[in-house]
């Protein structure tokens, strides 16, 4: 029996090494099609971009680089939006950290990163998109972050299982290599420097987001949705941040990113977007208070940004429409300008 186990383990271990060789061939972003095509565009373009955006659809769909550039002309900012759909923490920071590692950082002066809390979905763990970023260090970071979180023991266990599953899938899913070379999915730049609003994509005849359009229509027909949205936002405003637990692992990581970027001559600005769910605000607001003021743009307050919650600005619960995106981009641009002026 022992011989059998020993031999089987040796066989499997060698096989694991053999299939892990693919990580040498694959680029760090192999599981994110949109990001991959943005990188390809970024590397080809002659535009001297010096500011980059990283995050999920909340930046991809809502933060227009051209508006930011037009507000910050004094600083000669040229922004490119690297955010992509469903790119949550720590995928977004993983992409950013690798990006600054690989690219000539002298060109990049500012990085705007969406401030997110850990978002893990069991079903996504099996997909390449849901696990390609889950390296050993990311997995161990996630586990300590889960341990430090305010979640219940049950939820913590569930999240740990998901992260572990995602890690195993990452190692064993050999199809990634084939899929990467097959991938032909390119983002629609439309001269928007990486930005593509949801409303625009849905309106485009080439898009395949019919289900989202249906959802959008339904959402807009039901007036009670806006009431719910505002109710949640007001609850956020009523949170007593001093009583909330700080997730030290998360905070440490974010500060580490600021330091690492500084060494490469990049100023990092975290953006806390509006319209997140209450659980995320509970996790993120205590961190916001502890981050250096110049490194954060906090747009979570309903009272201060009521215009982002109106029917005329919303696409759905979590996303803004064209008008909302414009408003959001202006606010971010202005806050960024204020931060830059202060730093001067």
């Amino acid at each position: 029996m022992n011989l059998f186990i020993k031999k089987t383990l040796t066989f499997c271990l060698f096989l694991l090494v053999l299939i892990s060789l693919r990580f040498w061939i694959l680029p760090y972003y192999y599981g994110n099609d949109i990001y991959a095509s943005k990188i390809a565009y970024f590397e080809k373009t002659k535009t001297p971009f010096n500011t980059v955006l990283f995050g999920s659809s909340r930046l991809y769909r809502q933060l227009n680089p051209r508006i930011i550039d037009s507000i910050t002309t004094d600083y000669n900012i040229k922004t490119f939006n690297f955010a992509s759909p469903a790119t949550f923490y720590p995928e977004s920071t993983y992409l950013y950290e690798n990006f600054i590692e690989e690219n000539d950082s002298k060109k990049i002066k500012y990085a705007i990163i969406e401030l997110q809390h850990l978002e893990l979905f069991k079903n996504n763990a099996k997909t390449i998109k849901g696990n390609y970023w889950n390296t050993t260090s990311n997995m161990s970071h996630c586990i300590s972050l889960i341990n430090d979180s305010h979640y219940s023991k049950k939820k913590k266990n569930r999240l740990k299982k998901t992260i572990l599953l995602s890690f195993i899938y990452r190692v064993l899913d050999f199809t990634s290599i084939k899929d990467f070379f097959k991938t032909k999915n390119t983002f629609n730049n439309n001269n928007n420097n990486g930005y593509y609003s949801l409303q625009q994509e849905v309106a485009d005849k080439t898009s395949n987001l019919e289900s989202i359009l249906e959802y959008y229509k339904k959402f807009n027909l039901d007036i009670s949705n806006y009431k719910k949205l505002v109710q949640t936002a007001k609850l956020r405003d009523n949170l007593d941040v001093s009583k909330l637990t700080v997730n030290n692992s998360h905070l440490k990581h974010l500060i580490q990113i600021i330091k690492l970027s500084k060494e490469k001559g990049i100023d990092v600005i975290y953006v806390l977007p509006p319209k997140l769910n209450l659980e995320y605000y509970k996790a993120l607001l205590p961190i916001v208070n502890l981050l250096p003021k110049n490194n954060i743009i906090d747009l979570s307050s309903y009272k201060d940004h009521t215009n982002l919650y109106g029917k005329d600005a919303s696409f759905d619960f979590y996303h803004l429409n064209n008008k909302g995106s414009r408003l959001f981009s202006i606010v971010v641009g202005e806050k960024l300008l204020a931060n830059l002026n202060k730093a001067k």
Partner: peptide
């Protein structure tokens, strides 16, 4: 056997 395994993965 490794060759077969790689084919399976691939």
């Amino acid at each position: 056997y490794y060759f077969i395994m790689i084919l399976i993965f691939w």
